[in-house]
Design a protein around this nucleic acid. Sequence first.
DNA 1: AAATTGTACAACCGCATATTC
DNA 2: AGAATATGCGGTTGTACAATT
Length: 332
Amino acid sequence: MAHTCCHKEKVKRGLWSPEEDEKLINYITTHGQGCWSSVPKLAGLQRCGKSCRLRWINYLRPDLKRGNFSNEEAALIIELHSILGNRWAQIAKHLPGRTDNEVKNFWNSSVKKRILSHNIIPSFNTFSNVHIPFNHYHHQDHLYFPSSSQNLQSNFHIQNPVPEIAQPIFNPPCYEDTCSMDCVPLHLNSNQENQISKSDTTSLNIVDKLINPTTLIQQYDQCHDDDLFELEYIVPKMSDQSFEDYYACSNPIELMQQYDKCHDHHHLVEFDQPIVPKLFNDQSHEDYACSFQESSNFEAHEAPIKIQGYTSSSIYSQDHTLEANQFNYNSC
DNA sequence: AAATTGTACAACCGCATATTC
DNA sequence: AGAATATGCGGTTGTACAATT
């Protein structure tokens, strides 16, 4: 069935011929990108507008890089995928000259295959010791926590997911070395701080949204020997980070404007988007901790919190429950 | 050499959201 | 305001080619 944009026309489908490509290139280079639904008629193509758009964006655009992915690109895709999940378009925005389709195909062929065959998440080192030029992306776009609907487990079709309730095997050095969360340096203004400190329910909700320690440890126990891919959600470890180590989840221009407004670092609350940790160069999977998908849902006004005294040891209490007074909230 | 299987990636489909009328 | 249309996205399929049997 034809798309709505071309229901009146008889449309060709399948692979594009060189002649069709030429017509489309000629039209777009002459007239620019506009209303795709009118392109087929104007360009003399028996294709639907949607197909023309896809062909241009994914194949004919002059700024496309094409060719094999470099090790740096591969590592960046893996890194971004651990944060963004299957949001290929978002990932592709960080890879100049690459399309969402290309990234998706690359993931589904090369990376996924590697994961399934080795039962690991390929780390940067898997694709050689590359230096990820994150500074290049610092102000160009935004990063998000994983969405609630997407996670590694569903992406990889894991056969034996970590069970909801598992018998924890406590091994203190392991947590301290690999999974510590000494500080979650988010930011809060005084009003918000008061609101939170006056409401245990609210503060606990926020903490719970950020981290569910019991499940974190249980899951980590299940797979801390390089099977980190089995963790439900992998996020950068948050420890001893300053504002400089964070991105705000806004669009790049907005981010820069907001950053300019408050680069004295004392008015971060003016950011109206959640703030997330910046990815570091040379991070390995050891630099990651597990978090719940709900972490993506915390609201901007909830984000500016600082939690101190929150170590991986302390979160492992005997009855596996959290007490509100385990946390100190400090404005920044 | 032919048939089969595997792989990469181009293209399509359906859906959600945005925009226009 | 709501319907119609356009756009963008992610999942999936189709196809060409390579590798294997």
